[in-house]
């Protein structure tokens, strides 16, 4: 998983980093168009195109039936029923390509979330830095120490919550760059990266210990070693936002619409029945 995460991180960095200075909408736009094309092609090759075409034809046929037999209420109701039935059949035909798309889409969304779901801290901005421990002894939180590098300042003493096995600090970003915060527990040190920048960029919200799903959804940093006694370290980065025509929209909505529009725009070119 770590190798895969490294490859994906590198790939997305290569693709998105050059567009760091763009408005996030445009960089997401530039990414979403080929992504939409890729998804359309996956749909094409993993779906039963013949069956989808036939099902869609029947739906259209019954819609025309409504127009042709408009004075016959019996036919109208029957056509409506048939359209519903074929609609369900159509959705059933879409299940297989959706299953094939889940994997690439999941990786894509996790990576995009790291880029667009949050934004890096800006110089002078503060954020909560949390450490949660593993193990059963909550008193260990009393012994956690924190060491930030030059670009960061630990503004507050730790807020220790033994029953949650958690300690929180407020840290302030002083200089742009990828800074390290060293967390020391029971003689072992684990580092967490904090990104400070005025531009959008990939941030790692959380560094977690091993575990498939945790590693899948937090690909930004290597997993915390099992024997460190730390379960996770997180930073509360500000939420990212994308403005479309002056409206703030969740990046996922923008991505969904862009890929959808791209898919429909290119389906004719690639001869895909959607």
């Amino acid at each position: 998983m770590q190798i895969l995460n490294s490859i994906l991180n590198t790939f997305f960095d290569l693709v998105l980093a050059p567009m760091r200075s763009f408005n996030p909408f445009w960089s997401l736009f530039i990414f979403s168009v080929p992504a939409g094309i890729l998804l359309v092609l996956i749909f094409r090759y993993t779906s039963d195109q013949g069956a989808i075409r036939e099902t869609k034809d029947r739906i259209k046929g019954h819609m025309l039936e409504i127009r042709l037999f408009k004075d016959n209420p019996g036919v109208l109701m029957s056509a409506f029923g048939s359209i519903l039935v074929y609609n369900f059949k159509y959705m059933r035909h879409a299940v297989r390509p959706m299953l094939f798309m889940v994997v690439p889409v999941l990786f894509m969304l996790v990576q995009l979330d790291a880029w667009y779901g949050y934004r890096p801290l800006r110089t002078g901005e503060s954020a909560v830095f949390s450490v949660r421990l593993s193990g059963s002894d909550g008193r260990v939180v009393d012994n956690i120490t924190l060491q930030a590098d030059d670009g960061l300042t630990v503004e507050t003493p730790p807020l220790r919550i033994p029953e949650e096995k958690e300690a929180d600090w407020r840290i302030r970003a002083d200089k742009a760059g990828n800074h390290k915060v060293a967390v020391r527990v029971r003689g072992k040190t684990v580092e967490k990266t904090i990104t400070v920048s005025g531009n959008p960029g990939r941030v790692s919200v959380k560094r977690t210990s091993a575990g498939f799903w945790e590693r899948l959804f937090n690909p930004g940093e290597k997993p915390i070693p099992e024997d460190s006694g730390i379960k996770e370290i997180s930073v509360e980065y500000p939420l990212g936002s994308i403005y479309v025509l002056g409206w703030s929209m969740h990046w996922l909505m923008v991505f969904f619409l862009l890929t959808l529009i791209t898919g429909f725009a290119f389906k004719g070119f690639f001869r895909v029945e959607l």
Binding site: G36, M91, V102, L106, M108, F256, L260, G263, L274
Partner: peptide, 14 residues
Amino acid sequence: DAEAYIGPGAGFAF
């Protein structure tokens, strides 16, 4: 969270 959504593939159909 991004994982709440299975992507535009579903969008095409729905």
